[in-house]
Design a protein around this nucleic acid. Structure first.
Lengths: 190, 190
DNA sequence: TACTTAAACTAATGCCATTAGTTTGGAGTG
DNA sequence: CACTCCAAACTAATGGCATTAGTTTAAGTA
């Protein structure tokens, strides 16, 4: 049943994420993966159909890791706005500390092929939970989730592009923007 | 002085943007560019040092095109919030109508090598102008610009990924989010 | 011990970017 | 008009990549 069970999908995805972390997503190639296992590239095709499928698996695992990071690090005992601020901070921190994994988490799922339906992704569920105290109508909650994700990703992107340059800290922008955004959400609802 | 001036940088960049528009940025290759001009790939190296430089030039031109689109299509006679709503609408519209060009506009400039300093990019200048009526302190204006860009890009990204799926329209989110965001900005300032 | 089969392999194809070195044709000069 | 020059094309080659087809191998099972 299992002759020579040396490698498996999990090992490959983990190594792929490690490569992404060390040199960026563009260094995740069949050739580099094979090299890292001291095997030849064609051997990888015994475990995945092609590089694209490996990247899809990377995306799912990376999203899980981000989700776990956000979930475990958020204090339940603070008020709603502060809780979202904390979450936002952890989001940005994770993305900056593990840029390769974050990059992998952004890989788009195949159209009509994702494991999650719209709005089913763990991260969306989490944001939805944190927005519950605001008692928004469903439609507005969806808008708010879209807005928050956009703001968070935009801040991460900014940090990557000009984090080293002079200028106003991204951290300060994050605090200001989340604050303003939530205020605007509340105001709009009233 | 000028023997056989057949091709030049502008022609190559224009064709590269055309290829991006037809098949996405990943189809912009030396091989495809050469094919489109009926020449051999090495000939392109007489005009650009490598593919990377071509892509950098594409980014600049694409950013110009986006900027021109936003600039010319905004009505001066409306109130500040409505003006930003219009701009946002045109931003999203442009990105959806010319996905390849928009994709090219996002290519990151080489670190320490861009033609613009921080905050000098035309798009940033435009946003700054539209935010002037809000009379924000300089720091808050910078935060607001960062937030607006993030929201706009996030909406475009969402449209690309799930624009065809069922669900609440991106257009509605745009209207809601810009409205809420600007409300929050004003509130925070008071 | 022999069989089966997954997981490795070799060999090959066809992309791609890039470099080195060569040819060529049009503009300017005598 | 013939000559020179040189930018812009070319050919040939290298080395990287993903992927496929077909072959070998070795570990567990009968």
């Amino acid at each position: 049943m299992t002759p020579r069970p040396g490698l498996n999908q999990d090992m490959i995805v983990d190594r792929a994420l490690q490569l992404a972390e060390e040199g960026g997503l563009s260094t995740v190639t069949m050739a580099n993966l094979a090299r890292s296992f001291s095997i030849k590239p064609p051997s990888l095709y015994n475990h995945f159909r092609n590089l694209h499928e490996i990247k899809q698996s990377m995306a799912l695992k990376a999203q899980d890791m981000l989700y776990d990071h956000l979930k475990k690090s958020v204090n339940k005992e603070v008020e709603p706005v502060e809780r979202i601020q904390e979450m936002a901070k952890h989001y940005v921190t994770f993305a900056n500390r593990y840029p390769g994994i974050y990059e992998a988490s952004l890989i788009a799922p195949d159209l009509n092929e994702g494991v999650y339906q719209n709005g089913e992704e763990p991260l969306v569920q989490l944001l939805q939970k944190y927005l519950e105290p605001f008692s928004l109508p469903d439609r507005e909650t969806i808008h708010a989730i879209r807005g928050l994700r956009s703001l968070l990703h935009g801040l991460v992107d900014l940090h990557k592009k000009e984090g080293f340059k002079l200028g106003i800290e991204i951290e300060e922008s994050r605090i200001y923007l989340v604050e303003a955004f939530l205020k605007g959400i509340e105001w709009n609802h009233k």
